[in-house]
């Protein structure tokens, strides 16, 4: 009996190892080039990147693309440590630092959307329809009068950085605000922050994707109080690792560049435009290249370039590396853009 038992246990263990090695070999033995993209949670958690992966691997069968989703700060760190080949993030200030420190090259703005201010539908601070900075100011006043509560992400994510900048442009210092009783810091992910906001009947800043998803799942009852304005614009850009500084074991620079070219390609721009329409009846992201091509909303283009360009240019010349095509393609597309537009209309 005992011996039988041992045999059974050993067989089970061996099967486990068998399975284990099978899965390893499946991933390790692949002759495909492994491209690792370090990206932000708000983008990854929508599920859009899973669609892009399928599409990209269809176009480039020799490349296997993987996404590591982290907060923007950590995502950039990961690339700096050479553990990722490129980044896809939404924090122009830290992106510039990444370029300036020599870690990244060939930055490309690919898409945008708006953060929203979510809050109780009763809107105790009475901020509906105001501009973001005005809304922040009124929420602070209401908070001090004990009418309203603000919940901050408090985790140094891209969303948190955005929030801090809005407070700043409204004329307040967050280091001072965080000492106040109406200003709560969640210190956690977006969903948890939203749930806390919901429990407290408070206001918070949230990316559109996370809001819509949690609302659709009935995790929250909060409404969208403010949903447009230059201050809550959210711009996503891709940056490849600088091959001269960061590539040590094999070069994935080519693959990174292929992925960036892929992101700005017409087909993928259309995916951005369509993603989320069926589930939320509005798109979660807006394609930036298409916006340029259309050229009919100069105000919005100005907002984006104000926010996410450095002195009027999306990637200064000395941060470019063997990528003349990437920046020329746009111009070619610009020329043929009207024809495409005609088709669409």
């Amino acid at each position: 009996m005992r011996t039988k038992l041992f045999v059974i246990i050993i067989v089970v263990i061996i099967i486990l190892i068998g399975w284990g090695s099978y899965t390893y070999f499946n991933t390790k033995m692949t002759t495909k080039q492994l491209l690792i993209v370090s990206t932000t949670t708000s983008l990854y958690e929508t599920g859009l990147l899973d669609i892009l992966k399928v599409e990209f691997e269809k176009q480039h069968p020799s490349i296997n693309v993987s996404f590591i989703s982290q907060g923007t700060g950590l995502a950039i760190q990961t690339a700096m440590r050479r553990d990722a080949d490129m980044i896809l993030v939404h924090d122009p200030v830290r992106e510039l630092k990444f370029l300036q420190d020599g870690y990244g090259v060939n930055r490309k703005v690919v898409a945008y959307n708006f953060f929203v201010i979510a809050g109780p539908s009763s809107d105790p601070a009475n901020v509906k329809g105001l501009s973001p900075t005005e809304a922040f100011t009124k929420i602070k006043e209401a908070g001090e009068a004990n009418f309203a509560i603000w919940v901050s992400r408090g985790d140094d994510s891209g969303t948190h950085a955005k929030e801090k900048r809005i407070w700043k442009s409204a004329g307040f210092d967050t280091t001072e605000l965080r000492t106040m009783s109406w200003y709560l810091e969640a210190g956690t992910g977006m969903t948890a922050t939203l749930r806390l906001t919901d429990e407290k009947n408070a206001y918070t800043l949230v990316d559109l994707g996370s809001y819509l998803n949690n609302y659709a799942n009935e995790n929250i009852k909060l409404g969208i109080i403010v949903d447009a304005g230059k201050d809550i614009l959210n711009v996503y850009s891709a940056i490849a690792n600088n091959p001269k500084k960061t590539e040590v074991y094999g070069s994935n620079f080519d693959a990174s560049m292929k992925f960036i070219e892929f992101l700005v390609s017409d087909g993928v721009q259309q995916i951005f435009a369509d993603f989320g329409k069926d589930k939320f009846s509005k798109p979660l992201f807006n394609p930036y290249i298409k916006l340029l091509e259309r050229g009919n909303n100069q105000e919005l283009i100005d907002w984006i370039q104000d926010l996410a360009y450095y002195d009027g240019i999306e990637c200064p010349l000395h941060y470019r590396y063997e990528a003349d095509d990437l920046y020329q393609v746009i111009h070619k597309e610009l020329i043929i853009a009207p024809i495409i537009l005609d088709f669409q209309n």
Binding site: I36, I68, T191
Partner: peptide
């Protein structure tokens, strides 16, 4: 693991991801 889909995604990292996504159920 980095929670890479099809490569290093395991049950616990999926749970963390789905929770973060708001897919509580």
């Amino acid at each position: 693991g980095g929670n890479i889909r099809y490569v290093t995604r395991v049950l616990t990292t999926s749970i963390a991801l789905e929770t973060a996504r708001g897919e509580i159920a």
